[in-house]
């Protein structure tokens, strides 16, 4: 298949797909005009029935909590898959890496330590970032945000420690075993939180906690604990994936420095 045939083939296929695309766009509802009934119902009922001010979080963790459990398992499984794929084969561990070290010390390829200003600013930002992440997790039912977003922000904190050039501290903060246990505990907590509803004779993940006053931190029933579990699982998963990536990529290069 030479270049010209390929181009014609592409053009014909593109025309066909463009026709389908146009016909699909013509049948879409007009921009900004929502036709389903559920959105209006949710907008009307959420604050009164569940005492939650952020409808998206209410939908995710209350109205269709079991779907979110599925999504969380997908995340968990993909993290596990990455960890399995990137595990170190035992033959590679004791490989000689002297050549790499010398290659890194060639002219123009030295590893510069980050300057004092960068280290101080980065490490100083870790504390505020952790506090902000906890705030986002804890206020998931009041403000935009929740377990996922807050978990990602929390996972960014150890990454900043690594970026300050301190791989040793990163490994101590994000101890690989602890992180993996944390991820498993996050998913397990979500699974267990569904059980009390069944014990009380209702459906799985049914709310059993008092709903509280809408607008307060302690409101919305089960959403806050579920958010905390999600946050733990997401942040631990992200840190674990980054850890194996780092180990795979940079471990041998840094040996000369330490």
């Amino acid at each position: 298949m030479n270049r010209r045939v390929r181009r014609w083939f592409f053009l014909i296929c593109a025309c066909a797909i463009f026709g389908l695309f146009v016909s699909a766009v013509r049948q879409m509802p007009t921009f900004g005009h929502y036709r389903g009934p559920y959105g209006d119902i949710l907008n009307r009922e959420t604050v009164y029935e569940r005492h939650i001010t952020d409808v998206v979080t209410a939908v995710n963790f209350d109205w269709r909590g079991i779907d979110t459990l599925g999504e969380e398992s997908i995340l968990f499984l993909s993290v596990i898959g990455t960890l399995v794929l990137l595990r170190k084969p035992s033959s590679e561990v004791n490989d000689s890496h002297d050549e790499n070290d010398t290659a890194d010390k060639r002219k123009g390829r030295e590893i510069p330590l980050p300057s004092a200003a960068t280290r101080v600013a980065t490490l100083g930002l870790v504390g505020p970032l952790v506090v902000f992440g906890l705030y986002i997790v804890a206020h998931g039912h009041l403000t935009p945000g929740g377990g996922f977003q807050g978990g990602v922000i929390l996972a960014t904190a150890p990454l900043l420690v690594y970026l300050a050039g301190d791989l040793k501290s990163f490994k101590r903060i994000a101890n690989h075993e602890t992180v993996q246990i944390g991820e498993a505990l996050g998913l397990l907590g979500f699974l267990i939180l569904g059980l009390p509803g069944m014990i009380r004779g209702g459906a799985y993940l049914r709310n059993v906690l008092p709903l509280g006053t809408s607008g307060h931190v302690f409101s919305g029933g089960m959403i806050a604990p579920i958010n905390v579990c999600t946050g733990v699982a997401v942040s631990a998963g992200l840190v674990a994936v980054t850890y194996v990536f780092l180990e795979h990529t940079l471990e041998t290069r840094l040996r000369g420095r330490r």
């Binding site: 998206v56 935009p144 945000g145 977003q149 960014t156 990454l159 992200l238 980054t242």
Partner: peptide, 29 residues
């Protein structure tokens, strides 16, 4: 959709570039 926007901001700011840069460093090595 502020919830989705916050997800996009948090993921796209640090985690995504870090993953890409690590992969590129690995490929180059």
């Amino acid at each position: 959709a502020p919830d989705v926007a916050l997800s996009q901001i948090t993921i796209g700011a640090v985690a995504l570039p870090l993953m890409f840069m690590l992969s590129l460093a690995k490929i180059r090595r």
